[in-house]
């Protein structure tokens, strides 16, 4: 079966199948960007591991940030099945030639932000990712199945953090509300620009890489999240929010901010990238040593044989 027939039959494309160049390129770009987002996303939460206010929370947060490294790893591996090398993709990230999700360019200022990230950012990510488990490219879909399975606890732990804060002292409640105020709009922007302005969407839908439009997923997220905010006793910072015909109508986010952050002008763009580059450079001698050792061992084995 050729490529288009497989796609039309809702089949899966596997690594060595013939595929249009555009399909391959789109996938490499998207999977790499997704992988980059996982590993850059380790930072805003990772910097709270040392400060988590209870040992139980510290353990949960460590496990979560560690999962994100694992998810980055699964996704880079999926991209590699398309004929690129992880090291090259990392170079593209480090040189700013490939992007990651802009949400991670916002700072985590209080402990409540860790709750907000889990609840909102992971919540939005799940809405985005669940349809990707049925993506037409087999290795990406399989990686996403694994990611989604593991991420199911991420959102819950975030909600639990905020729930505890919202039942806590006045200062804790204020902390939770402040976090929601700051993370709400960036979370809505995680679904990308409005459909009318989205450049890649149509082709990706035709290829079975994308299954739902940005606006559709954004609406799904809002419908899911607003009732949860009620349970938390927190106020969604949108005066235009109304419930009608089974959906919450909401104010459109200010997308000029999104474009600005994508361009590199978010509060933490520089910081996130330079931390990542530094970790990579600081580790260069370690990776070189491991390779040198492997070569020596192989040579020793050879000469012993």
């Amino acid at each position: 079966m050729d490529f288009q027939a497989t796609i039309d039959a809702d089949g899966r494309i596997e690594p060595r199948d013939a595929m249009p160049d555009g399909y391959r390129k789109t996938l490499i770009r998207q999977i790499a960007q997704h992988a980059h987002s996982e590993i850059i996303g380790m930072q805003p939460e990772g910097n709270w591991i040392s400060r988590a206010p209870s040992l139980r929370r510290k353990a949960i947060l460590m496990a979560k940030v560690q999962d994100e490294a694992g998810h980055g790893l699964y996704l880079y591996a999926a991209a590699e099945t398309l004929g690129v090398d992880r090291a090259d993709l990392l170079d593209l990230l480090h040189s700013g030639k490939q992007k990651y999700s802009s949400i991670f360019n916002y700072p985590t200022l209080t402990w409540a932000d860790i709750g907000a990230i889990g609840w909102l950012v992971d919540g939005a990510a799940i809405v985005n990712q669940v349809p990707l488990c049925r993506c037409s490219y087999g290795p990406y879909a399989r990686a996403m199945v694994r990611v989604c399975k593991e991420e199911s606890f991420h959102q819950r732990q975030g909600f639990e953090i905020l729930y505890t804060l919202s039942k806590g002292t006045e200062a804790q409640k204020a902390m939770a509300q402040d976090a929601l105020n700051r993370w709400w709009w960036p979370s809505l922007m995680m679904f990308g620009p409005p459909d009318a302005a989205s450049t890649h969407s149509e082709q990706s839908m035709a290829w079975g890489i994308k299954r739902h439009s940005n606006d559709e997923l954004r609406q799904r997220f809002v419908d899911m999240t607003v009732p949860q905010a009620d349970v938390l006793g927190l106020r969604v910072p949108d005066d235009g929010l109304v419930y009608e015909d089974g959906h919450y109508r909401f104010t459109e986010p200010d997308f000029t901010e999104l474009y600005d952050v994508v361009k590199g002008n978010g509060p933490c763009n520089q910081q996130r990238l330079s931390h990542r580059v530094k970790a990579h450079q600081d580790g260069a001698w370690v990776r070189e040593a491991a390779a040198a050792y492997a070569e020596k061992q192989a040579a020793r084995k050879e000469s012993a044989a």
């Binding site: 940030v65 560690q66 370690v286």
Partner: peptide, 22 residues
Amino acid sequence: TGEWIAAAPQLEEDVALGNVAL
């Protein structure tokens, strides 16, 4: 040990040291 998570020489090591710290 936790300080290494997001700062390790390679992704596999972020995960490995995460396990150690946990």
